[in-house]
Structure formats: structure tokens, C-alpha cells
């Protein structure tokens, strides 16, 4: 009787071990099938542009997040709505006046964000190819030294 009990206990343990492992193995396989390698990337969001008239100027703004493992450098800018795009910076002078100047090269460390926003850095769009009114949109393409080109769509809107 004792040996039968031992036998049953061993059998039960074996079953538990088997099905336990088996179950774990199944769920592991499931998650393996769902797993994908997410590479760090440069993400652009909060993009928008001011209205403007054909051949006139506008400004575009966005946030750049460097989700890669490396520092990256913003090299150039373009848009399907303007002949020229430059990164400029509005600065407040000691006498209280404001002026604008081309911005220095922007280096974005890994994990950091670069805010291109009103009153500071802005993408200056010159010689607009068409009128840009509220409700329109345009594409902005940024080229990075490591990540290559990244494009986003910017709605035309009025700042609140």
C-alpha cells in the first residue's frame, strides 16, 4: 500500500512537472511569436506650421525625440511646401529687443528631446510653393547623421 502511495505521488509530481513546464513552455512560445525587436528610433511629434501665402514665409514647429542608443545630429531640413527650410532661433537681446539668427548645428543626445517651438528654435519656411491656410497640411523631412531621413506631417494651424 505504501509503495502504491509512493508510486502515485511520484506520478502526480511527474504530471505536475510536465504540464507545468509544458504550460510555461507554451506561454513562452506564444510570447516569442509576439516578440519583435524594437529598434530605437528618432520620433517626431507635435508638428504644426503657421499659415502663409504663396512665395511668402511660414514657420514650422515640432518635437524630436532621440530614442536611439546614440547621439545624433540634425543635418538638414526640407518640406514639400517650401523651396527652402532653415533652422533659425529667435533671441532676446540685452536691450529687450528680439532678433533672429540661423541656429547652430543641433546635436541630440540619446534619450533626449529637442523642442522646436514658438519664440525659440523654429523651422523657417521661405518661398512657399502654395498658400497654406488653416486645415491644410505639409510634410517636413529632417535628415539626421545616423538615423537618416525622417518625415512627418504638420497641420497648418493658428497658435493659441
Amino acid at each position: 500500500m505504501k509503495s502504491i502511495t509512493h508510486f502515485l505521488l511520484i506520478l502526480l509530481s511527474g504530471c505536475l512537472l510536465f504540464f507545468g513546464c509544458s504550460s510555461e513552455s507554451n506561454s513562452s512560445n506564444e510570447s516569442d511569436s509576439k516578440k519583435e525587436v524594437v529598434l530605437g528610433k528618432i520620433a517626431l511629434d507635435n508638428a504644426w506650421a503657421r499659415p502663409g501665402s504663396q512665395q511668402g514665409k511660414s514657420a514650422a514647429y515640432l518635437r524630436i525625440s532621440n530614442g536611439t542608443a546614440s547621439t545624433d545630429t540634425l543635418l538638414s531640413f526640407s518640406s514639400n511646401a517650401a523651396e527652402s527650410v532653415e533652422l533659425h532661433k529667435s533671441i532676446e537681446n540685452d536691450d529687450g529687443t528680439t532678433s533672429m539668427q540661423p541656429a547652430d548645428e543641433q546635436v541630440i543626445p540619446s534619450g533626449e528631446k529637442l523642442h522646436i517651438e514658438p519664440g525659440g528654435l523654429h523651422l523657417m519656411l521661405t518661398n512657399l510653393k502654395r498658400d497654406m491656410a488653416v486645415g491644410d497640411s505639409l510634410q517636413i523631412t529632417l535628415e539626421f547623421a545616423r538615423a537618416g531621413t525622417v518625415t512627418t506631417t504638420a497641420p497648418v494651424q493658428i497658435q493659441n
Partner: peptide
């Protein structure tokens, strides 16, 4: 009106 950044900020502030 050729001011792309700060003057529209001023205009936005006026409307605010």
C-alpha cells in the same frame, strides 16, 4: 508680417 516666429506669437497673445 515677414516675421515668421515672434510676431505671430505676439498676434496669438493679442487674441488670447
Amino acid at each position: 508680417t515677414n516675421c515668421p516666429d515672434v510676431c505671430p506669437v505676439i498676434t496669438a497673445n493679442m487674441t488670447n
